[in-house]
Amino acid sequence: MKRELLNAEAIQHHLATLPGWQVEGQELMREFRFSRYLDGIEFVRRVALLAEAMNHHPDLIARWRRVTVRLSTHSAGGITELDFELARQIQTVPSASERQT
């Protein structure tokens, strides 16, 4: 997977395929909401497994019934294809698709 920075046009193209995700600064970001706190914690666990398998680790912020995911390729200094690939995989996490907003 390429770790080269994406330009604004490429980022917008990828965002069009990932509902709910947005860019904040040099990060790809999404907040997921859950009906129960433990659902959010289980979501974090599942995302952590995906991230470990890709050796690409997002910032995960767990709050009461909310989890914020922030993706950036720090070695490249911003958003790369790798970030979008992990975002697409996060979209497949069952607890995300069942309870996301």
Rank of each mutant, 00 (worst) to 15 (best):
L38K: 13
M54L: 10
T80S: 09
S35G: 14
I79L: 10
R88N: 03
I61G: 00
E42V: 14
P94W: 07
S72K: 07
T92E: 14
R99W: 09
G25H: 11
D59P: 04
A96E: 15
N7H: 13
V47A: 00
G25W: 09
Q26N: 14
T80Q: 13
A76I: 14
R99Y: 13
H74K: 14
F84T: 05
G77W: 07
R65Q: 15
S35A: 13
R65V: 01
L28Q: 03
V69Y: 06
I41L: 15
H56T: 07
L82C: 09
Q100G: 00
M29T: 05
Q91M: 15
L5W: 10
R65A: 11
R30I: 01
G77S: 10
E98S: 11
L82M: 13
G78F: 12
V23M: 05
Q12T: 04
A87I: 02
E24D: 03
F32T: 05
A8G: 00
A96R: 14
S75C: 03
T73D: 06
I61P: 02
F84I: 06
A51H: 02
A48S: 15
P94D: 13
L15F: 01
L15V: 00
R70E: 07
R88D: 12
H74R: 11
S35Q: 14
K2V: 12
L5Q: 04
L18G: 09
R36G: 07
V69S: 08
Q22G: 02
E9G: 01
T101G: 13
F84S: 06
K2W: 11
R65C: 12
F84P: 11
R36T: 11
D39C: 05
M54F: 12
V23P: 02
H13Y: 08
P58Q: 02
E85L: 15
R3G: 12
L28K: 05
L49M: 11
T92H: 13
N55C: 02
H13L: 06
G40S: 08
F32S: 03
G78D: 08
D83T: 08
V23H: 04
R3N: 11
S72V: 09
Q22V: 01
Y37N: 10
Q26T: 14
L71T: 07
H13M: 04
I11K: 02
R70A: 08
F32Y: 15
T68P: 03
A53Q: 14
A87M: 09
Q22T: 08
L18C: 05
H56V: 02
E81F: 05
R63C: 03
A62L: 11
